[in-house]
Design a protein around this nucleic acid. Structure first.
Length: 269
DNA sequence: AGTCACCTGATT
DNA sequence: AATCAGGTGACT
């Protein structure tokens, strides 16, 4: 379930639980997880390494190892990176695992096995992310920046928001939610969005992501397993046919780039 | 620019 | 049986 907020929550939790630990051994259950590299490279490159830091870049989790290499974990659609107390008790959906000293393990738990783990030299990170846009919660992502990339694009504004080369970390849900908040129709050509609406969109993106990070962290910490949807109720996402919370018209669904877009025909022009 | 493949599980 | 899923990269 990972867009930027969920990946941020996962990153913080793994950082708290695994920073300083040493990797005893690694296992990868299928070659695809390491694509386009291979499992052996990751097994060899991580054995005996100590985890120095855990960071996030866009939707990527970066596990920095001593010795100058870094594991890049991408959760794709259904992945989750967790630390468990006993490496032998990993679930069957654990597609990769890193046994830590003390018998714990950091695992990539991913039912669909679409997640990816690759190993890189720390010095190569800049090149790896050379096509990734700025962090939406970082200093580069200003209203002026959003106005600039919007003016330069004729594609539907929702696809612009989800283009990782332009902004790093927004996905389907939060793009949909931010556009609803800003009152912009998802199919509007980016270059034809008004200046005022774009300013509102910038604020909506930042506000939505910050709120969602808090929600994702709470969702993980709540005992009894509250789902994130209960903590962060979406205004339009997944609500096709239900009344818009603002104007009571019925929320619609359409396809953009193969993904479902939800919007209110009354509030978003 | 649009579609498909990658995977599996849940829902209709 | 068919469709859907919070992502991405490789096709046409």
């Amino acid at each position: 379930m990972p867009e930027l907020p969920e990946v941020e929550a996962v990153t913080r939790r793994v950082r708290r639980m695994a920073a300083g630990a040493r990797i005893v051994s690694a296992g990868l259950y299928r070659a695809g997880i390491a694509a386009p590299q291979n499992p052996e490279k990751i097994r060899r490159g991580t054995r005996g390494q100590r985890i120095e830091a855990v960071e996030r870049r866009g939707k990527n989790i970066l596990v920095f190892l001593d010795g100058g290499s870094v594991l890049r974990v991408h959760l794709r659609m259904t992945g989750n990176l967790t630390v468990i107390a006993d490496h032998r008790l990993r679930p069957v959906t654990a597609r990769a695992w890193f046994e830590l000293d003390g018998g714990r393990a950091m695992i990539l738990d991913d039912p669909r096995a679409l997640g990816r783990i690759t190993l890189h030299k720390t010095a190569e990170l800049a090149k790896l992310f050379s096509n990734l846009g700025p962090e939406p919660l970082g200093p580069e992502f200003t209203p002026e920046f959003l106005a600039r990339i919007a003016a330069a694009s004729r594609k539907p504004i929702k696809l612009l928001l989800m283009d990782q080369r332009l902004i790093a970390g927004l996905g389907n849900i939060y793009a949909v939610e931010a556009l609803f908040q800003a009152g912009i129709h998802p199919a509007r050509k980016a270059c034809r969005a008004g200046a005022g609406r774009l300013r509102a969109l910038h604020a909506a993106i930042v506000g939505t992501l910050k709120l969602a990070i808090d929600s994702a962290i709470k969702a993980y910490e709540l005992p009894g397993g509250f789902s994130e949807e209960e903590v962060f109720p979406a205004a339009v996402y997944g609500r096709e046919g239900e009344a818009c919370l603002r104007c009571r018209r019925l929320v619609r669904r359409m396809k953009q780039g193969g993904r479902s877009t939800y919007y209110c025909p009354g509030c978003q022009k």
